Computed example of a mutant assay.
Amino acid sequence: MNDQHICTHLGDEYERFHGAVVPPVYQNSLFVYPNFDSFVEAMQDEQNNYLYWRGKNPTVEIAEKKIAALEKGEKCKLFSSGMASITSAILTFVKSGGHILSVSNIYGPAIKFFKYIEKFGISHTNIQSTSLEDIEKAITPSTRLIYLESPTTMTFQLVDLPAVASLAKTNHIRTIIDNTWATPIFQNPLEFGIDIVVHSASKYLGGHSDIVGGALITSTEIMNRLFYDEYQLFGGAMPPYEAWLLTRGLRTLPLRMKAHQESARQVAEFLQVHPAVKQVFYPGLHDHPDYQLGQKLLKGYSGLFSFELKADSFENVKTFINGLKLFKIGVSWGGFESLVLSPNYGYNTESLLQSHISPGHIRISVGLEECSDLIQDLDQALALV
């Protein structure tokens, strides 16, 4: 079953929904039973019965089936935000006295969460390297989890996922990866041996900048425990209407990702030769240091990447961003619109350098506008610095 079929038809069950080509929204909070015996029986297996939509809901289930199949995983649960899925995944694997190792630059709120749970006796180390040798050196006797992004946030380095997964299993360590950048269309980390994949469904999976959500995909074995603890008890379930919107977005995911990839490649190649640009950080470029690794891990490249201005002062960063007309200033990414931001806020140069990020760093999300218009917009703004 290919990705296009999964996105357009898997889980829709037209006969079950009276032939509706678009399945309905089950907005009800609970499900009633004809007798107490059937209710008691359902209570013994909440994961596979409809009782209360915080556990299982038909509308949410359709999107979950599609995403699990896309990620080549056994089970998926949808959450009310990407951070809800990330924090639930992390707490599935660690407890007091445990140690978490995160690799290179990762999503800022995830780092904040690692610091937050220090009060529960869980320690954390972040290494500014994607080298397998450095990862192995950073493992301690109490390491219980390796947390990854590939490509990494802002710097877009790749991590050798099969090698890290093998190293982790040898040391009885669990692994989690945030696969939001690549989407299941372009990368399937579970096939490399990673234990849990998480996504911000707000990005490419939804694709329209109109939902906030998260997804967690893993094995049946892990989900059987996670469902009753971190999923049910934390209460971070995705509401039915958001799941309905997510399913709508998934129907066009393969087509959208091809379009994002093609436009991003053209934009990256334009920036690569522009005299105002020092360096482009896009794994799809042949001269990217991890390009060959990407050929092993990735089936394609999304529309999010970064570049560095030669004139790397905060004033030049600000001038360039304010000079853009089509690229809008905003957090997040993965929608139809093109976005721009910089991690340089004018007061954090030292912390940027510690993360191996230049003060001239610019991140762009290439949307679905006409590519030539986007290039023209970048060109006129670069002329200002």
Rank of each mutant, 00 (worst) to 15 (best):
residue 150 S to N: 14
residue 80 S to I: 09
residue 135 I to P: 10
residue 91 L to Q: 15
residue 51 L to K: 02
residue 129 S to P: 12
residue 67 I to Q: 09
residue 89 A to Y: 14
residue 47 Q to V: 01
residue 151 P to Q: 01
residue 124 H to V: 05
residue 43 M to W: 14
residue 78 L to E: 11
residue 149 E to K: 14
residue 138 A to Y: 11
residue 151 P to N: 11
residue 46 E to K: 06
residue 119 K to Q: 07
residue 127 I to N: 06
residue 39 F to P: 09
residue 137 K to A: 12
residue 114 F to W: 00
residue 113 F to C: 03
residue 133 E to V: 07
residue 97 G to L: 03
residue 79 F to K: 05
residue 54 R to C: 06
residue 69 A to D: 12
residue 88 S to I: 01
residue 39 F to T: 11
residue 115 K to W: 13
residue 69 A to R: 07
residue 39 F to I: 00
residue 136 E to G: 06
residue 34 P to W: 08
residue 35 N to C: 11
residue 97 G to N: 08
residue 54 R to M: 14
residue 31 F to T: 15
residue 84 A to G: 13
residue 93 F to N: 04
residue 49 N to E: 12
residue 145 L to F: 10
residue 99 H to L: 11
residue 51 L to P: 03
residue 139 I to S: 14
residue 75 K to D: 08
residue 121 G to F: 01
residue 138 A to E: 10
residue 157 Q to A: 13
residue 110 A to L: 08
residue 138 A to F: 04
residue 101 L to T: 11
residue 40 V to I: 15
residue 43 M to T: 02
residue 123 S to E: 09
residue 55 G to K: 06
residue 60 V to S: 10
residue 93 F to A: 05
residue 105 N to K: 11
residue 80 S to Q: 00
residue 133 E to I: 10
residue 149 E to G: 06
residue 51 L to H: 04
residue 122 I to S: 03
residue 107 Y to M: 11
residue 87 T to Y: 14
residue 101 L to N: 02
residue 46 E to V: 13
residue 151 P to E: 02
residue 66 K to F: 08
residue 60 V to E: 01
residue 131 S to H: 06
residue 74 E to Q: 10
residue 109 P to E: 01
residue 35 N to M: 04
residue 58 P to T: 02
residue 62 I to Q: 14
residue 110 A to C: 05
residue 97 G to I: 02
residue 130 T to H: 11
residue 38 S to C: 10
residue 141 P to G: 03
residue 156 F to Y: 14
residue 59 T to R: 05
residue 145 L to M: 12
residue 81 S to Q: 04
residue 100 I to T: 01
residue 34 P to F: 12
residue 142 S to Q: 13
residue 107 Y to E: 15
residue 103 V to A: 08
residue 32 V to S: 07
residue 57 N to H: 10
residue 147 Y to T: 02
residue 153 T to W: 15
residue 150 S to L: 03
residue 61 E to F: 10
residue 103 V to R: 02
residue 130 T to I: 15
residue 161 L to K: 07
residue 87 T to E: 13
residue 70 L to G: 12
residue 57 N to T: 08
residue 152 T to L: 05
residue 155 T to S: 09
residue 149 E to M: 15
residue 51 L to E: 13
residue 76 C to S: 02
residue 81 S to V: 04
residue 36 F to Y: 13
residue 116 Y to C: 12
residue 96 S to K: 12
residue 49 N to W: 14
residue 55 G to S: 11
residue 103 V to I: 08
residue 153 T to M: 14
residue 124 H to F: 00
residue 61 E to G: 05
residue 60 V to T: 10
residue 152 T to S: 01
residue 55 G to E: 05
residue 92 T to M: 06
residue 97 G to D: 00
residue 48 N to I: 01
residue 54 R to A: 12
residue 39 F to Q: 04
residue 63 A to Y: 03
residue 106 I to E: 00
residue 127 I to C: 07
residue 59 T to P: 11
residue 141 P to S: 00
residue 153 T to P: 02
residue 30 L to K: 14
residue 73 G to N: 00
